[in-house]
């Protein structure tokens, strides 16, 4: 609790919730325009803001927006998994599988883009879930370690077996019709993922997923088959990543070993750590800050990653709750100084 002295009087900082927020969080239960705007404002501003930036900026920055949105989705999916008690260090696994699935469908079966992406999303989610099914009983750090090594090993596997294009990868895949479609699609997908998952988690069914993170033994003692629920969560989370992989594949018209790169695992976690975990919106915010930043640092070459690591360490130590928690507190609560008698 912060305190300070003004004119010889002791003051203490007090926080109170803004009364609107206290009444309801549900948009259908609102009674006045003011309340509606109060709730809509923090949602609309970023949606419109990013859209404006995306449509107005030159083509190079469109690609940056694209990458940002993709990482934001990976981060949201990571946060979803972690909300369900699964600490994943291998978003690259899901991403890569989705990417190769889309690449495969397009290269070998010559399916068009609007089919490969949904197909890759579902099959990617399924394959990822299957791969992790044997280790679904593991918890915390143990699960994390397995997910960290899997994508790296798959990378070697593709290298060794020369399957799916081997080290060369698959090139010349079908592109999107034009970049407007591309940008609109990814933004729509990102917001859909964010708001969809948020709503899902708040539902009675989603509650069970969250309870697993809080205490999986109590969830079991409540008669819930946690492994079935974890598998469902894995499918949902990895499908989101697989979509990103498929999207990226068509955007770059290429898929290959780099899709399993550590970057796709680490950056989402970094975004979540900075943005604030278990909020879903926080990681998105984190990605919005980190990815463009890393783009600005590009000219430093590999030193970029050094900066990156340093920022991460500082954030993890100095801002353990993340930016989003901080902002939402400032928005939802008023602060004032009160006299201490």
């Amino acid at each position: 609790m912060k305190e300070r002295v003004i004119d010889g009087q002791n003051y203490r900082k007090e926080r109170i919730a803004r009364c609107i927020k206290a009444r309801s969080d549900d948009i259908y239960a609102l009674t006045s325009q003011k309340e509606m705007w109060y709730l809509l404002f923090p949602r609309i501003v970023p949606i419109v803001g990013i859209a404006i930036v995306a449509y107005l900026l030159p083509i190079y920055w469109k690609k940056v927006i694209l990458t940002t949105c993709i990482f934001a989705m990976l981060a949201v999916s990571w946060d979803f998994l972690s909300s369900c008690g699964m600490l994943s260090l291998g978003q690259a696994l899901f991403f890569g599988i989705g990417s190769f699935a889309a690449g495969g469908f397009n290269h070998y079966l010559h399916l068009p883009v609007y089919l490969t992406i949904p197909l890759a999303t579902v099959t990617g989610g399924l394959i990822s879930t299957m791969i992790l099914l044997p280790v679904i009983r593991l918890r915390g750090i143990y699960f994390a370690m397995v997910t960290l090594i899997l994508p790296l090993m798959l990378m070697r596997l593709i290298e060794a077996t020369k399957l799916l294009g081997g080290t060369e990868g698959l090139t010349g895949l079908s592109p999107f019709p034009n970049e407007w479609v591309e940008v609109t699609l990814i933004m729509a997908a990102m917001w859909a993922a964010l708001f969809g998952l948020r709503r899902f988690i708040a539902s009675d069914y989603g509650l069970i997923f969250v309870s697993i993170r809080d205490n999986d033994r109590a969830t079991m003692a409540s008669g819930i088959n946690i492994y079935a629920f974890k598998a469902q969560a894995l499918f949902i989370g990895s499908s989101v990543c697989a979509f990103c992989g498929a999207f990226m594949t068509h955007s770059y018209q290429f898929t290959g070993m780099p899709v399993f790169a550590m970057e796709f695992s680490i950056l989402p976690i970094a975004a979540a750590a900075i943005g604030g975990m278990n909020t879903l919106a926080g990681p998105l915010l984190g990605a919005m800050l980190l990815v463009p930043l890393s783009e600005l640092l590009r000219e430093f070459g590999t030193l970029r990653i050094v900066f990156y690591g340093a920022i991460l360490i500082i954030c993890v130590i100095g801002l353990p709750e993340g930016i989003f928690h901080y902002l939402s507190r400032k928005y939802n609560e008023m602060e004032r100084w009160v006299k201490i008698e």
Binding site: I141, A144, I266, I269, I305, Y308, G309, I313
Partner: peptide, 9 residues
């Protein structure tokens, strides 16, 4: 995990 991994990076 993040901190030690960041140190590695």
């Amino acid at each position: 995990v993040i901190a030690t991994f960041a140190v590695a990076l």
